[in-house]
Design a protein around this nucleic acid. Structure first.
Lengths: 216, 216, 216, 216
DNA sequence: AATGAATGAGCATTCATTCAT
DNA sequence: AATGAATGAATGCTCATTCAT
């Protein structure tokens, strides 16, 4: 009683099905290795319909990137409560980040791996999202430094570098957590907080690590 | 009558020329978008010769990954002197890492981006190298902890997570340093040491960051 | 809330709109390059309606050919007054012909170019019209010859050839006149009359051109 | 004992085979309806080889047009002996033209029908050839007029129009001759000479046809 | 009278790969 | 040691056409 191939549905619904399929295929095979045939089949529609609604492989991929980027940033935003102290905001954001990437591995693959390896146009799309996150982290660091009234002159580039390092560490941990059974989003977040927060604190108090001996 | 194209050279030399060309093309275009035609042309040989020496596109790509992975690990190894203290070893290793990736952007692209986006087979090849580096870092942390006689029971998984975070941060900074004019390998290394070393020190002394309030 | 698109109109009107659009698209793009989508859009209706009224691309094209062929022959017929002398009839007919083709370039393109290049079926459709015109010209020539009581035995095939030549010259001049700014229908007609009438007169008086010397 | 599929032949030979096949298919089906598959099959090679040697469908079609245009103009040129009187030159040229088009119907279809119906780029290619022929005819008329010392001021546009008419008549007669059994190139040429030469003579002597009565 | 939703079939083009020399 | 000649197998994309409403 329930037909297997559901037919004749409104455009908006079909489009989401197509994006679901596309994210899965793009995420697993990569942009170039993914074939429109495969995507259409997985979406349960014919290829012409995919083209009718999403124009081209490039546009389809871009649509995937945008949807997944929005989903990720909104997940992080939803996890953070602005009133709380900076370290608590970071902790909440990291947990949301690790949880979301764990639940959407294909989407995360599209954003983190595929979009960055297939041309500037796609990369730019993710860069926008990444910079939003880096800016968020940067601002958390800056706010903390200001609150602590310590070393308010921490140079801008230094802070940017820190944020880049932190986001990179998070991305690396996300992959590790997904691949290592038994590691939860909470544990990954804890590892990163432990790793990062003390270092940030030190820097904000003006303590720097320096090589003890001269070198070439 | 002087021939412009140098002909008839020993196999080993030709192979290196081919790998040079392949790394460049693979690094810039990506595995799938790279064409054997283009690689052969850049190498200055005919396509059948590429196949004669390297068998297939897959084998050629694998050969590229291996060569670049070896080159990178050797560069890092060469930068580290085993007798020195752990922090100094880490500092030297990071500098070597950032310097090498800056000097070989195509090779780094092959390792960091391309190899991870085109199937498990290739990814496994890099994972091997990555684990070697993670192991090196892990051991540095462990040694330090032991030397300091503090918290020798730092759980293994925790240490592994830290190493993963540190390596991820380094990779992220490498891309950032290459893309941001005026950032030297030394500065990138300093940023990461400042970021990481205090956190590691804290952990080894048993101080952990904990969320100050309860959560859902 | 005034609807921009006029809806619900009688079938005959809609059909003419579709044929208008189709002639334009077929004339400019060619039969194969024309897409039913484009025609439907230009006609301001949905594709299924085009199929409902005109059955298929082939039928639609045939309908275009017929409509334009009829329009052209009627225009020529309307320009000619049967009572007048033959040369005057020819002159009037040519003027009507050049005027009509200049005013309906897309229709002329359909007849002269597109219909003849896409298969015997379509070509036959135009051939019918062309033969009608050739017959008209042939009869003009024959009538003149009879009236002049000269060379009544001008062989039939010779006359047919002359008519074919004249019509071909007219077609060629039509294209030239349309493409050359400043050439009017009247001038084109004059050029052709000057060119043709003397030759016809000569022939009807039994004077033939002959090669002066022998040949292989 | 003589393989059916001849293999491994030099590039130049294969290219001619491909052009032969392409002219046949393009001439019969038209540019758009022709499929590269069919051309490759008729040429006895695989599709990739066609692309390797001739780049694209557009380039292949252009190559066909050029080859056939050159062949036609050379055939006409070869039939004309420059020393002879103008009428004789025209007569010889027409015979050569009708003979060549009769022997190469597909090539003639490519030039006369297909190339003119599929975009300016292709049309321009034939226009060049056509103008060469028109120029040749124009010059014959001009020379004759000069030799006859009559009406040397025949306006340039008038002469151009005459040449266009003559070439159009020839093209039309070529199609008619090819389609009507028993009509030889010689007869077609004779018909056209009879039709045209007297008219030209009249014009050069300043006699024009004029409508005998006024009109709107 | 009219349309949004959907597809089977085909086409130009490209690519990794091999054979004969 | 090295290459010109050649192809099987995809792949992105388009189009005429139909169905359910």
């Amino acid at each position: 009683m329930g037909a297997v191939k559901t037919k004749r549905m409104p455009r908006a619904v079909r489009e989401q099905q197509m994006l679901d399929a596309a994210v899965q295929i793009f995420g697993r095979r990569g942009y170039m290795a993914a074939s429109m045939d495969e995507i259409a089949e997985l979406a349960g529609v014919s290829k012409p319909l995919v083209y009718l609604y999403l124009n081209s492989k490039e546009d389809l991929f871009t649509a995937c990137i945008r949807r997944e980027a929005t989903a990720l940033t909104e997940a992080v935003r939803a996890g953070v409560r602005p009133g709380l102290p900076a370290d608590r905001q970071l902790w909440d954001g990291l947990q949301a980040f690790f949880a979301h990437t764990a639940e959407h591995p294909d989407g995360w693959s599209v954003l983190h791996l595929q979009a960055r390896t297939h041309g500037e146009t796609f990369a730019a799309e993710v860069t926008a999202m990444r910079e939003e996150i880096v800016a968020f982290v940067t601002q958390l660091i800056a706010v903390t430094a200001r609150e602590a009234h310590r070393d308010p002159d921490l140079p801008e580039r230094e802070v940017a570098g820190l944020a880049v390092a932190l986001v990179g560490a998070a991305e690396s941990l996300a992959a590790w957590a997904n691949a290592t059974p038994g590691v939860t989003a909470r544990q990954a977040a804890a590892t990163l907080m432990n790793f990062a927060w003390a270092g940030l604190g030190n820097l904000m108090e003006g303590r720097h690590w320096t090589p003890s001996a001269g070198e070439a």
